[in-house]
Write a protein that binds this DNA or RNA. Structure first.
Ligand code: MN
Ligand code: MN
Ligand code: ZN
Ligand code: ZN
Lengths: 162, 162
DNA sequence: TATTTAAATAGGAACTATTCTTATTTAAGG
DNA sequence: CCTTAAATAAGAATAGTTCCTATTTAAATA
């Protein structure tokens, strides 16, 4: 999982500070683990898994427990500070980007990339769909092969079973 | 997981027959297990999990192994006979509906319902997104609370952790 | 129809992701 | 500083999925 280049260090520190305030507002104690976990989300592109976050932080907090990462990410999710992204693979993935955006999922490496499509918000859903329940969110999902995987070619991916 | 009312028995049997031919064309042996598994997918609404399928068929094939269900569904998927649906929960879900359609996911009971939106196909994706890779599929995903869960009220759902 | 054989299955073990339990540590308020 | 409830680490437990292998079976062939 690569580090992002799109956000520089001071942008990230600013968001971590803001996050710190948000924690206090939500009656969540500000622990080192929590800050590092949130920072790791911001620093990673492709919507990291729990393991991605865990391994990245182990260098800084060598006896971090993986359970803390699970617990903390679910906590953030329950407080609306991040969202959980569906998995095409079997691992949960998380998203610190709360802006209205959409996803491109690479079916080979399972990486998830963001994109924006402001006009989509204006398109109205068919009646048939409106009747299914109370809609809280509408998103577009693209599936395909990411540029990185296309470069690598057909190797380096394994399917399960047959 | 409820049985569907939208497809009657003869519709289903017709699709099972057609499926049987498709298996032969794909050099897949037509076994009782495979037919029952495919039939179970057709008979169930809400995009069943492996366990849903397993339990439904156990009454007919009492010593069906759960591994066979996993193996078979993945096999069908690899041959393009069904698709795998992303999980908001932790379980894999499967979809025998290969038509171009979209999903409404209930965040409470995790049920996934189909809807159709033909016009969506014509909307063109922003350039930004086109550059992410080779796009194979574009879908809309709605999240919310299904009618059934709304009726049941706030009880009957548990969140993990805190 | 009987025989053959590679493919498919059942059953249980193994593996992997996630959650739970409990003793210890710590943030934050007094 | 103290106090204390909240958070954590470590490892056990659980749940979903895949692997292993002896047995069964679909379907091609005689
Ligand atoms: Mn995102
Ligand atoms: Mn569907
Ligand atoms: Zn990729
Ligand atoms: Zn529901």
């Amino acid at each position: 999982m690569k580090r992002a280049k799109k956000q520089n260090r001071s942008d990230i520190e600013e968001r971590v500070q803001e996050f710190s305030r948000l924690c206090r507002k939500n009656d969540l104690r500000v622990t080192n683990q929590r800050l590092e976990i949130f920072r790791a989300l911001l620093e990673t592109v492709g919507h990291p898994t729990v393991e991605d976050v865990f391994h990245q932080i182990r260098t800084i907090l060598p006896n971090l427990s993986i359970d803390t990462v699970y617990r903390t990410l679910t906590l953030f999710e329950n407080h609306g500070l991040i969202t959980r992204v569906q998995c095409l693979s079997d691992k949960g993935r998380f998203d610190p980007n709360l802006e209205n955006h959409h996803h491109f999922i690479c079916v080979r490496c399972k990486k998830i990339e963001d994109f924006y499509w402001p006009e989509f918000t204006d398109y109205s859903i068919p009646d048939e769909a409106m009747k299914l329940g109370m809609i809280q969110m509408k998103k577009v999902e693209l599936r395909g092969i990411c540029n990185e995987c296309r470069r690598k070619g057909r190797n380096a991916h394994q399917k399960k079973h047959s």
